[in-house]
Design a protein around this nucleic acid. Structure first.
Lengths: 210, 210, 210, 210
DNA sequence: AATGAATGAGAATTCATTCAT
DNA sequence: TATGAATGAATTCTCATTCAT
């Protein structure tokens, strides 16, 4: 009478979930949440429409499932963050490179999920709490640590963390909006951004770093 | 056979268009493009459903109408951009303040329009060509001018312009995603960002500007 | 308080009616009753939508108007029928030629009106009473007269009259359905049909008439 | 990935198609194509609106479906046509009787489909190619054969075939337009028409056939 | 568990008709 | 009378979700 948590069943179920979420991510990204139909997702996943409802209660839950998966992978990344002190500048470049390497393949997920988030309270809250807050927290903590060590000047930690996060988010968005310069030179961005954030716009300072 | 362009009729028609676009902007922002119904837009505009089709061929055309309006106001702003040389830093703060003052009230429009843009090729192309390209062009030109005058160090103009645009776009997006810090401290951002971009993250430089 | 039957006004009104009916005939024939819009009819007539309602109570009434006009012209034709006794055969050819000359230009009207008649009781009754019944009556009378004069064999007058009417109606319909043979050889039909109806299909009789 | 054509499913699907086409034929005939609503067709078929779209892509496709069915049954009839030589006259009566027996029960279909055909290019072409052309071809062939055998006088085969087809079509149309004489005496028509076409209108010939 | 046909609520759009100007 | 913008009922079609097999 009890649920027998058959481990094999669970593996199969997990695989099906992944299958569905992968398909949904692709279709949501291509067509957007509303234009994407459950039928199409099922087709891409290679299963019948109805089967999706064995694993997810609704189309919206599928989107939430994508978000949760994103969240899990984000959590794993968080650790990557504060590497040991080398040159702070070098560290920062590495950090950016890491984050962007994570952002790039998730661009599709982001594209799938962002629009609906702007509109769906529940989704937005979930994403904010589970992805953004931890990101900010880690970043703020990192900044504070560096500042304490005198590595970073005394700036507004909260807003700076958000500015850096926003910078990446914004660049990703611009790329999704069709900017080819960003798309083609994505690799160069970590360096350019590091230069921008360390040397600033003002001249005569680039010598400072050296 | 010809239309006699009765100026009074035109005024009335323009007012109706505005009425519809205002209502649509609000409803799209609240519910997103798809969840927003024509009926609801009409209700908010205080007219009958069918009347919308006297002014716009389809729901999508209403969205395009919003975009065109945004485009027009953006065009007007572009001129504001390169103000007189004072302290470059002060100029930059002012510039950011202007742009953000424009962004803030248009947040709703942006929220209404962005999601659909990520998914609708035509819309995306339109926005990119009519809003982003001019913005980048102006910004790049400005940066080049300053650099020529030795005011700005030798950096990658294209990517830097995009970085700054992306920074603002990303911060706006974060705010739309529910970040209250940004929402509450929006006013402070120009200063903080100027500081970030001029002084950089590295310590010991804040004295440079003084 | 009374209606002043200003004769000039009446002329103008009659002209407007004609203008509208002409336009409606054309548009109904092209698009069918339902696909034809009042707006389109008005456009073709060169007036505003609303104006049509000054002259006709509804779109259906416009169709009825077309039918009435057809009826009037049909009435006028009826007289043409029983021409002088010459060779009966020659008379019949002439008769067919006349009727077909009337049918041909009215093909458009017929196309406009027939489909709706098959579906609209009122319209059907009207057409039947005002166009078909008189036609049959005249034809039957004519047949009876000829038969009395020994010119026509003793056949079923009612059904024969209908057969001849149906023959013309059917050929017209076939042509409207796209038969190019009929369209191109419309002129020859009176002779061919006369031959068919007088000589019959059986061989060895064609000599009879000679 | 492939569809396994489950024969039971196919039977069920075929039954549903028939169910829908039957209902549509009835409703189209009663109300005409445009006044007929999908909702009404579904109601008559005893299914939900949406179900119709599982089997037909659009309302127009339902009409095409009716036409295809008509076409298939017409194809089957074509074979019936040229029966063995007996008295040619008797043959012709039989032929007419057959065709009219086919026409009569299809009157409803014809009524449903004709009006839209007069207006819809695609439909018209389809009907012409698939129903009329084969009919003419068979009829012309039959006439030529008979003529070759000296059974039929030397007449214009093309136009004669069309005249006979038009005769039946026209009589059917007159009946649909409400002529009660034709409706009540439908059974007698083959004889009367045979008499008309063999004996002709001219007197003195009725003896020929005897 | 998987299937996919059936469901029916809901949405965009059309258009005959009205009516203030 | 003429106009044509406004109206809103009505219609086609879509698609998330259910459920019998």
């Amino acid at each position: 009478m009890d649920k027998t948590p058959d481990p094999i069943q669970e593996l199969v179920a997990a695989a099906r979930r992944k299958q569905i979420l992968d398909a949904a991510t692709q279709v949501f990204a291509e067509k957007g949440f509303h234009r994407a139909t459950v039928k199409e997702i099922a087709r891409v996943a290679g299963i019948a429409d109805g089967t999706i409802y064995t694993y997810f209660a609704s189309k919206t839950e599928v989107l939430l499932g994508i978000l949760h998966r994103l969240n899990e992978s984000t959590e794993r990344e968080q650790q990557l963050t504060p590497e040991r002190e080398q040159d702070l500048r070098a560290f920062f470049t590495t950090y950016l490179r890491q984050r962007m390497a994570l952002l790039w393949p998730n661009a599709e997920v982001f594209q799938a999920v962002l629009p609906e988030m702007l509109v769906n309270e529940e989704l937005r809250a979930l994403y904010y709490q589970q992805v953004l807050v931890p990101t900010f927290t880690v970043a703020e903590h990192s900044l504070r640590t560096q500042r304490g060590a005198g590595q970073v000047q005394s700036l507004d930690v909260s807003l700076t963390a958000r500015a850096i996060a926003g910078l990446l988010l914004g660049l990703l968005t611009l790329q999704l909006l069709g900017d080819e310069v960003i798309a083609q030179r994505w690799e160069e961005l970590p360096e350019v951004l590091t230069s921008l954030l360390f040397d600033g716009l003002q001249p005569g300072k680039e010598t400072t770093h050296e």
